[in-house]
Protein backbone atom coordinates (compact mmCIF):
# COMPACT_ATOMS: atom_id res chain seq x y z
CA UNK A 1 0.00 0.00 0.00
CA UNK A 2 1.33 3.46 -0.82
CA UNK A 3 0.79 6.60 1.20
CA UNK A 4 -1.91 7.99 -1.07
CA UNK A 5 -4.01 4.86 -0.79
CA UNK A 6 -3.44 4.82 2.95
CA UNK A 7 -4.72 8.39 3.24
CA UNK A 8 -7.81 7.62 1.18
CA UNK A 9 -8.55 4.55 3.24
CA UNK A 10 -7.93 6.53 6.40
CA UNK A 11 -10.54 9.08 5.35
CA UNK A 12 -13.02 6.28 4.65
CA UNK A 13 -12.18 4.57 7.94
CA UNK A 14 -12.89 7.76 9.86
CA UNK A 15 -16.34 7.83 8.25
CA UNK A 16 -17.00 4.16 8.97
CA UNK A 17 -16.99 3.34 5.27
CA UNK A 18 -13.97 1.04 5.08
CA UNK A 19 -14.41 -2.73 4.93
CA UNK A 20 -12.99 -4.74 7.86
CA UNK A 21 -10.42 -6.38 5.58
CA UNK A 22 -9.12 -3.06 4.32
CA UNK A 23 -9.20 -1.73 7.86
CA UNK A 24 -6.78 -4.46 8.94
CA UNK A 25 -4.38 -3.59 6.15
CA UNK A 26 -4.65 0.09 6.99
CA UNK A 27 -3.98 -0.54 10.68
CA UNK A 28 -0.85 -2.47 9.76
CA UNK A 29 0.31 0.35 7.52
CA UNK A 30 -0.33 3.00 10.17
CA UNK A 31 1.70 1.08 12.74
CA UNK A 32 4.64 1.30 10.41
CA UNK A 33 3.98 4.92 9.43
CA UNK A 34 3.24 7.11 12.46
CA UNK A 35 3.49 10.27 10.33
CA UNK A 36 0.38 9.18 8.42
CA UNK A 37 -1.31 8.41 11.68
CA UNK A 38 -0.67 12.01 12.68
CA UNK A 39 -2.69 13.15 9.65
CA UNK A 40 -5.60 11.12 10.90
CA UNK A 41 -5.42 12.95 14.21
CA UNK A 42 -5.42 16.28 12.37
CA UNK A 43 -8.45 15.29 10.34
CA UNK A 44 -10.18 14.21 13.52
CA UNK A 45 -9.47 17.59 15.05
CA UNK A 46 -10.77 19.27 11.89
CA UNK A 47 -14.05 17.38 12.20
CA UNK A 48 -14.39 18.45 15.82
CA UNK A 49 -13.84 22.08 14.82
CA UNK A 50 -16.51 21.80 12.13
CA UNK A 51 -19.00 20.47 14.64
CA UNK A 52 -18.22 23.37 16.97
CA UNK A 53 -18.92 26.01 14.33
CA UNK A 54 -21.64 28.39 15.49
CA UNK A 55 -24.76 27.55 13.54
CA UNK A 56 -27.33 29.10 15.81
CA UNK A 57 -30.11 30.36 13.56
CA UNK A 58 -30.86 34.07 13.82
CA UNK A 59 -34.51 33.27 14.57
CA UNK A 60 -36.38 30.79 16.66
CA UNK A 61 -38.08 28.08 14.60
CA UNK A 62 -41.47 29.57 15.55
CA UNK A 63 -40.49 33.03 14.29
CA UNK A 64 -39.01 31.53 11.14
CA UNK A 65 -42.25 29.62 10.59
CA UNK A 66 -44.24 32.87 10.81
CA UNK A 67 -42.01 34.37 8.10
CA UNK A 68 -42.39 31.28 5.94
CA UNK A 69 -46.16 31.35 6.38
CA UNK A 70 -46.23 34.98 5.28
CA UNK A 71 -44.06 34.18 2.27
CA UNK A 72 -46.29 31.26 1.32
CA UNK A 73 -49.38 33.49 1.49
CA UNK A 74 -47.72 36.24 -0.51
CA UNK A 75 -46.75 33.61 -3.09
CA UNK A 76 -50.31 32.31 -3.21
CA UNK A 77 -51.78 35.77 -3.67
CA UNK A 78 -49.24 36.50 -6.40
CA UNK A 79 -50.17 33.21 -8.03
CA UNK A 80 -53.83 34.19 -7.93
CA UNK A 81 -53.15 37.62 -9.36
CA UNK A 82 -50.93 36.01 -11.99
CA UNK A 83 -53.96 34.17 -13.33
CA UNK A 84 -55.86 37.43 -13.94
CA UNK A 85 -53.82 38.48 -16.98
CA UNK A 86 -54.25 34.96 -18.33
CA UNK A 87 -58.01 35.32 -18.08
CA UNK A 88 -57.81 38.73 -19.71
CA UNK A 89 -55.72 37.25 -22.46
CA UNK A 90 -58.26 34.50 -23.12
CA UNK A 91 -61.12 36.99 -23.06
CA UNK A 92 -59.18 39.19 -25.48
CA UNK A 93 -58.87 36.39 -27.97
CA UNK A 94 -62.56 35.54 -27.72
CA UNK A 95 -63.48 39.19 -28.22
CA UNK A 96 -61.18 39.49 -31.21
CA UNK A 97 -62.68 36.39 -32.81
CA UNK A 98 -66.21 37.67 -32.33
CA UNK A 99 -65.18 41.06 -33.73
CA UNK A 100 -63.71 39.49 -36.86
CA UNK A 101 -66.87 37.42 -37.42
CA UNK A 102 -69.02 40.52 -36.98
CA UNK A 103 -66.83 42.48 -39.39
CA UNK A 104 -67.05 39.76 -42.03
CA UNK A 105 -70.81 39.52 -41.58
CA UNK A 106 -71.11 43.29 -41.74
CA UNK A 107 -69.04 43.43 -44.92
CA UNK A 108 -71.27 40.81 -46.48
CA UNK A 109 -74.40 42.71 -45.55
CA UNK A 110 -72.85 45.91 -46.90
CA UNK A 111 -72.05 44.34 -50.26
CA UNK A 112 -75.53 42.87 -50.58
CA UNK A 113 -77.01 46.18 -49.52
CA UNK A 114 -75.01 48.03 -52.14
CA UNK A 115 -76.27 45.67 -54.77
CA UNK A 116 -79.85 46.20 -53.70
CA UNK A 117 -79.49 49.99 -53.77
CA UNK A 118 -78.05 49.98 -57.31
CA UNK A 119 -74.69 51.29 -56.28
CA UNK A 120 -71.68 50.30 -58.33
CA UNK A 121 -70.14 47.32 -56.68
CA UNK A 122 -69.20 43.78 -57.54
CA UNK A 123 -72.56 42.23 -56.75
CA UNK A 124 -74.50 45.12 -58.22
CA UNK A 125 -72.54 44.98 -61.46
CA UNK A 126 -72.88 41.25 -61.70
CA UNK A 127 -76.64 41.50 -61.21
CA UNK A 128 -77.35 44.46 -63.37
CA UNK A 129 -74.89 44.34 -66.28
CA UNK A 130 -76.22 42.27 -69.10
CA UNK A 131 -73.29 40.73 -70.98
CA UNK A 132 -73.84 39.13 -74.29
CA UNK A 133 -71.37 36.82 -76.02
CA UNK A 134 -71.51 37.12 -79.78
CA UNK A 135 -70.00 35.40 -82.77
CA UNK A 136 -67.18 37.18 -84.63
CA UNK A 137 -65.50 36.65 -87.94
CA UNK A 138 -62.05 37.22 -86.48
CA UNK A 139 -60.28 33.82 -86.34
CA UNK A 140 -59.73 32.39 -82.83
CA UNK A 141 -61.30 35.44 -81.20
CA UNK A 142 -64.16 35.83 -78.74
CA UNK A 143 -66.26 38.94 -78.30
CA UNK A 144 -68.71 40.22 -75.73
CA UNK A 145 -71.06 43.12 -75.67
CA UNK A 146 -72.53 44.97 -72.74
CA UNK A 147 -74.02 48.36 -71.94
CA UNK A 148 -71.95 50.54 -69.63
CA UNK A 149 -74.19 51.83 -66.83
CA UNK A 150 -72.25 55.00 -66.23
CA UNK A 151 -71.78 56.22 -69.76
CA UNK A 152 -74.77 54.53 -71.39
CA UNK A 153 -72.54 53.36 -74.24
CA UNK A 154 -72.55 49.84 -75.63
CA UNK A 155 -69.11 48.26 -75.22
CA UNK A 156 -67.86 45.55 -77.54
CA UNK A 157 -64.85 43.53 -76.40
CA UNK A 158 -62.95 41.38 -78.87
CA UNK A 159 -60.45 39.02 -77.26
CA UNK A 160 -57.77 37.62 -79.51
CA UNK A 161 -56.17 34.27 -78.89
CA UNK A 162 -52.48 34.50 -77.94
CA UNK A 163 -50.40 32.99 -80.77
CA UNK A 164 -47.54 32.12 -78.38
CA UNK A 165 -49.87 30.29 -76.08
CA UNK A 166 -51.22 28.39 -78.99
CA UNK A 167 -47.68 27.37 -79.92
CA UNK A 168 -47.10 26.22 -76.40
CA UNK A 169 -50.07 23.98 -76.48
CA UNK A 170 -49.06 22.71 -79.85
CA UNK A 171 -45.59 22.15 -78.33
Amino acid sequence: MNRRTAERWMSMAMDGELSPRCQERLDAYLKAHPDVQQIRDEWGHLGAQLRQLPVTPPQTPAAAWQDVQRAIRVGQSEHTSDSVPTRHFALGWASATVAVILMLAGAGVWLVGLGNRGMPGPIALADRTQVEWIETDVPDAMSMVYEDETTGLTVIWVMMADPDQENDYAG
Binding site: V55, T56, P57, P61, A64, W65, V68, A71
Partner: peptide
Protein backbone atom coordinates in the same frame (compact mmCIF):
# COMPACT_ATOMS: atom_id res chain seq x y z
CA UNK B 1 -40.48 23.02 9.36
CA UNK B 2 -39.80 23.99 12.95
CA UNK B 3 -38.32 20.58 13.70
CA UNK B 4 -35.91 20.67 10.79
CA UNK B 5 -35.29 24.41 10.65
CA UNK B 6 -32.05 24.57 12.69
CA UNK B 7 -30.43 21.75 10.74
CA UNK B 8 -31.41 23.09 7.35
CA UNK B 9 -30.19 26.51 8.39
CA UNK B 10 -26.89 24.99 9.56
CA UNK B 11 -26.47 23.17 6.29
CA UNK B 12 -27.20 26.31 4.28
CA UNK B 13 -24.84 28.36 6.43
CA UNK B 14 -22.16 25.75 5.82
CA UNK B 15 -22.65 26.20 2.09
CA UNK B 16 -23.11 29.96 1.70
CA UNK B 17 -20.95 30.99 4.71
CA UNK B 18 -22.99 34.10 5.45
CA UNK B 19 -25.68 34.21 8.17
CA UNK B 20 -27.87 36.75 6.35
CA UNK B 21 -27.74 34.82 3.09
CA UNK B 22 -28.40 31.59 4.97
CA UNK B 23 -31.44 33.12 6.65
CA UNK B 24 -32.92 34.40 3.38
CA UNK B 25 -32.12 31.18 1.62
CA UNK B 26 -33.63 29.17 4.42
CA UNK B 27 -36.94 30.95 3.97
CA UNK B 28 -36.84 30.41 0.22
CA UNK B 29 -36.09 26.73 0.74
CA UNK B 30 -39.06 26.22 3.04
Amino acid sequence: MQAYYPRVYGMLLGMVRNPDDARDLSQQVW
